[in-house]
């Protein structure tokens, strides 16, 4: 249970780490769009998008392994979509056929491209969370969503809820671990029995967890009150977000990538 870490921030200082969180969020979205823009079977377009992610990884000083590891979580999804393409795409020339299974060259190629596409998208977003602390991320989202204030959407509160939730995930994990151990010491058994029995066995964990979450929420509210928290009005930031030359370079490179991809699509 201890190994579960949410928010996989990799702590170092680098070009990418120092970029503005808002810009990074926007660029990540733009990168996803760019990856989707690449027409199918355009090898050079994919190469360009791939090179971009490799170069960004190098500039971020995050080990390539950590970025790749992020794919692990959706490995099943990747394999599933690849298999779907391989077995059910009937276009193109048949390269293998056995009873009702036919595999075509187009199907294989398409599976390859889909795998690449998903992997690049996941790696791109992983790079965002690897180089941006959860707090920066929440601040960035708050700032990006601020136009919604016009329609009375509580942007600040939304961002606050998000950062509190992120902050308390490790705490609750620890708490869960402790309660599980305490109930196990009293002979609780979570591993045997049918589904209903196992679901029932969760009650002695969930109730104390729920109770302590309310207690923590209450205490946190009191602590915030004691420090005169009064919402977003007149609130200043400890860390001002500022656009620097790094963000402009990042923006230009990604714009170049998109132009390049569109150009290659036309060829």
């Amino acid at each position: 249970m201890k190994d579960v870490s949410f928010g996989q921030y990799y702590n170092t200082t680098s070009f990418v780490h120092k970029m503005d969180a808002r810009v990074k969020i926007l660029l990540s979205i733009a990168y996803i769009v760019a990856v989707f823009l690449v027409k199918e079977f355009h090898f050079y377009g994919f190469l360009a998008a791939f090179l971009f992610i490799v170069l960004t990884t190098i500039f971020s000083k995050v080990p390539f392994f950590s970025v790749l590891r992020s794919v692990k979580g959706i490995l099943f999804f990747v394999i599933f979509s690849a298999v779907l393409q391989i077995f059910f795409n009937t276009a193109g020339e048949v390269v293998f056929s056995w009873k009702f299974i036919t595999i075509t060259d187009k199907g294989l190629l398409k599976a390859g491209f889909i795998v690449c596409r998903i992997m690049m998208i996941v790696m791109g977003t992983a790079l965002l969370t690897l180089t941006t602390t959860p707090v920066e991320l929440a601040d960035g989202i708050e700032s990006l969503l601020s136009p919604l204030k016009l329609i009375k959407f509580p942007v600040h509160e939304f961002a606050l809820i998000m950062s509190i939730a992120l902050r308390f995930i490790p705490t609750l994990m620890e708490e869960t671990d402790r309660i599980i151990k305490a109930q196990k010491a009293r002979g609780a058994d979570f591993e045997s029995g049918n589904l209903i029995k196992r679901a029932k066995a969760m009650i002695p964990i969930l109730i104390p967890l729920l109770v302590s979450s309310f207690r923590r929420a209450d205490e946190l509210a009191d602590a915030m009150d004691a420090r005169c928290y009064s919402g977003s009005k007149g609130r200043t930031k400890y860390k001002k977000q500022r656009i620097t030359y790094r963000d402009i370079i990042g923006f230009l490179v990604l714009a170049g990538l998109i132009v390049g991809i569109v150009f290659l699509n036309g060829v």
């Binding site: 305490a182 609780a188 002695p204 104390p208």
Partner: peptide
């Protein structure tokens, strides 16, 4: 028997009786 730190945080049942009996039933 193992009593953890702040053992009161592991209470869960509706009544004291049920909570104390939990280990016994297990």
């Amino acid at each position: 028997g193992m009593v953890f730190q702040y053992p009161e945080y592991q209470l869960f049942a509706e009544t004291v009786f049920e909570d104390v009996a939990f280990g016994l039933k297990n």
